[in-house]
Design a protein around this nucleic acid. Structure first.
Length: 665
RNA sequence: GCCGACUUGGCGCAAUUGGUAGCGCACCGCUCUUGUAAAGCGGGGGUUGUGGGUUCGAGUCCCAUAGUCGGCUCCA
């Protein structure tokens, strides 16, 4: 008889005692149930008053369960092949999962192949995932061979981090993998769950992607384990689509496009992480910089310049040498000179390549007495900085060792701080939109209680943080908190932008700083004649020009809009005879500031079209007899579409308009 | 910095168990060339990232170093 009243997907129903998720949900795509907000296996037996929802495999929770179960199968496969392997953790992640193992030999690509085979066998065998509640003492006994799991048991309830998939805040549980034929437990793992009912539901849409080392529990102090990354999807079509997205991202990789389109390179002779821009990349960069300068000038910024090297003293005052010395290039040591008696005649001196521009701008502020009438003072510089990034992190233009920041420092009075921040945020968003990015959210990076990295008075931090938060909230954009992510001297807002294929990039940062003004003892004279300390706002819109260049390259997949394209128009004659006509057309365009050339090489027209399409020239103007006779040209665009016989005046108008409007074509 | 993989003409690749470097594109020359993604023929170019070592002999094996790639850690 029906004696339990529960709610299923919002509908009240009465069910028999002992009813579980298998009884409530018949759809094969329901893989788990959410009971009173908590995820449970389908095997969970409902209780009076439970509010239950089915979890679809294609939902975010469903995918996580699928991937986590696949991770378990991976771990079982690893231990089947190598019983000596010790288990780390194996959580689901975006698009997939990983599992860490302590093994003697790192996994090879061949190992991954044989692991996939073993996983397929396990999946086909249809093992059931059976939840079993245990306690610390029993679990410790069962897992006595698994030192890392033992460590997690000891951590239960305290700071968990990535271990959260193994042990939750509630009961300690183990999942047994039970062979359906023999009823025997063939493998088990400490796990919070939930899981798919059985391995067969994983299906065939999974793949092991790569292996790599990873520190146990994410700390450099710990041993490195061998991590295997995999991906898993409800269907093979979704797996294929995912692989397709990865290929698309690889095709857009700015490092690859940089070489293909002859934009920039990293000559080995110069050193890791140090780029040179070739003429085409240089043109794009110049346009970016010119436009940025124009916008800064319009917005009341002053332009300043500072040298690339400085005596160590400057970064001692700023505090960078005590906090970030290992991130700076080692000093150029100017030797001291001694006379014949060994007495110092000239003191030695250390010079550093600058890793930041702020102290230089501060010195400009200090070069004279400042009045409240001078503020806000906004100093802008394309400042090239050098940071000795660790060898393993250098990555094309997005993580280089030498790069140029579009850096500005605003010196403001406490009263104008909030309005200046609002202006800066609007300025940033407007400029980013001009570069074709228009999907943003904000991140508020704050200090972490008790972390000695953060300097200064906590009360001041709180004040700064609340001002930033208020400005960010008023922008109307989504605000995501980032506790502990602040700079050592103050909190910051960063603008995150989504690119054409949905990836997010941290772009601009706006940081408040109460610390450096104090260290450098900055002052201005207030209206009442008193000496006051200004507040500094650090901000960079592109972050670094190189990085922004890389992001734009990937955003546009190399198809830069006309205003940025290094070559905007190329004339392609149908035959040599029409070169002259196209030269005339090109002259007109060039006189209006268009970057144009005529391809008068020996190649055939078809070959020229192919070459310039691959080069991503936005406008190809083709001309033959018909066009010349009618004073017209034929457009061909990068996507292969074309428009013939466009009157010359109209064609020129159109090209100029496209450049002027910064639109994409 | 740590773990692993990789490095052959400008670029992309090839070279049996170690036996003395090839191909395509690009480049140069010549001939040809009127309608939307590769004309034909010929030519030049590499002491295989660098430095050591093993060997009669090394692109192939070993060591070191630089650089690149994938992760981890880091990112003022």
């Amino acid at each position: 008889m029906s004696n339990l009243k529960i709610t299923v997907d919002g509908v009240s129903v009465a069910v028999d005692a002992g009813t579980d998720g298998f009884g409530l949900f018949t759809s094969k795509t329901i893989v788990a149930q959410r009971v009173n907000g908590a995820l449970k296996d389908l095997a969970y037996k409902v209780l009076e008053g439970d509010e239950i929802e089915g979890v679809e495999i294609s939902s975010e929770d469903g995918l996580n369960i699928l991937r986590h179960s696949t991770a378990h199968v991976l771990a079982q496969a690893v231990q089947n092949i190598n019983p000596e392997a010790k288990l780390g953790i194996g959580p689901p992640i975006k698009d997939g999962f990983y599992y860490d193992f302590d093994v003697e030999e790192p996994f090879t690509p061949e190992d991954l192949k044989s692991l996939e085979k073993e996983m397929e066998r396990i999946i086909r065998s249809g093992q059931r995932f059976m939840r079993r509640v245990t306690n610390e003492a029993d679990a410790a006994k069962e897992l006595s061979n698994e030192p890392y799991k033992l460590e997690l048991i000891g951590l239960k309830g305290s700071e968990l981090g990535d271990g959260a998939a193994e042990v939750g805040a509630g009961e300690l549980t183990i999942y047994d993998n039970v062979d359906p034929a023999s009823g025997e437990t063939v493998w088990f793992d400490l796990c919070r769950g939930p899981h798919l009912p059985n391995t067969r539901m994983i299906g065939g849409a999974f793949s092991l992607m790569r292996s790599a080392a990873a520190y146990w529990r994410g700390s450099e102090q710990n041993k490195q384990l061998q991590r295997v990354y995999g991906t898993a999807w409800p269907t093979k079509d979704e797996l294929r689509a995912h692989v397709g997205r990865l290929e698309e991202a690889a095709k857009r990789d700015h490092r690859r496009l940089g070489a293909e389109l002859d934009l920039f390179s990293f000559p080995e002779e110069i050193g890791s992480g140090l780029a040179v821009f070739h003429p085409k990349g240089g043109m794009i960069r110049k346009v970016m910089e010119d436009y940025s300068r124009k916008r800064h000038e319009e917005s009341g910024y002053d332009f300043v310049y500072s040298p690339h090297v400085t005596k160590s003293n400057l970064f001692e005052i700023s505090g960078h040498l005590s906090w970030y010395a290992e991130g700076m290039y080692p000093p150029l040591q100017l030797d001291e000179e001694r006379d014949e008696n060994g007495v110092v005649r000239k003191q030695g001196q250390d010079y550093y390549l600058k890793p930041m521009n702020c102290p230089f701008h501060i010195l400009i502020f200090k070069s004279q007495g400042r009045s409240y009438r001078d503020l806000p003072l906004r100093m802008f510089e394309f400042g090239t900085v050098y940071r000795y990034e660790k060898s393993g992190v250098v990555h094309g233009l997005t993580r280089a060792r030498g790069f140029t920041q579009d850096d500005a420092h605003l010196f403001v009075t406490p009263e104008t701080m909030e309005s200046e921040l609002t202006n800066v945020l609007n300025f940033v968003l407007g400029l980013l939109r001009d570069y074709g990015l228009d999907d943003f959210y904000l991140e508020l990076s704050t200090r972490e209680e008790g972390n000695p990295k953060f300097v200064g008075d906590p009360a001041v931090w709180d004040q700064a943080t609340s001002i930033l938060e208020s400005v960010a909230t008023k922008s109307g954009l989504t605000l995501v908190p980032d506790p502990g992510g602040a700079a050592f001297y103050g909190p910051k807002i960063s603008v995150q932008a989504r690119d054409a294929i949905g990836r997010t990039w941290q772009m601009s940062t706006i940081q408040l700083d109460f610390n450096l003004p104090e260290r450098f003892d900055l002052e201005y004279t207030a209206a009442d004649g008193s000496r006051q300390r200004p507040v500094m706002i650090h901000r960079a819109l592109f972050g670094s020009i190189e990085r922004f260049f890389g992001v734009l390259t990937e955003h546009y997949a190399g198809h830069f809009p006309p205003w940025l394209a290094p070559l905007q128009v190329v004339g392609i004659p149908v035959a040599d005879e029409f070169n002259e006509y196209l030269y005339d057309v090109a002259d007109v365009l060039r006189s209006k500031g268009v970057r144009v050339t005529v391809d008068s090489s020996d190649d055939r027209m078809q070959k020229k079209i192919r070459n310039h399409t691959k080069d991503r020239v936005p406008f190809m103007l083709i001309a033959g007899g018909e066009d010349r006779d009618n004073r017209a040209v034929s457009f061909r665009f990068r996507d292969g579409s074309q428009e013939n016989g466009v009157p010359l005046e109209q064609a020129i108008e159109r090209i100029l308009a496209a450049i002027e409007s910064k639109e994409q074509v």
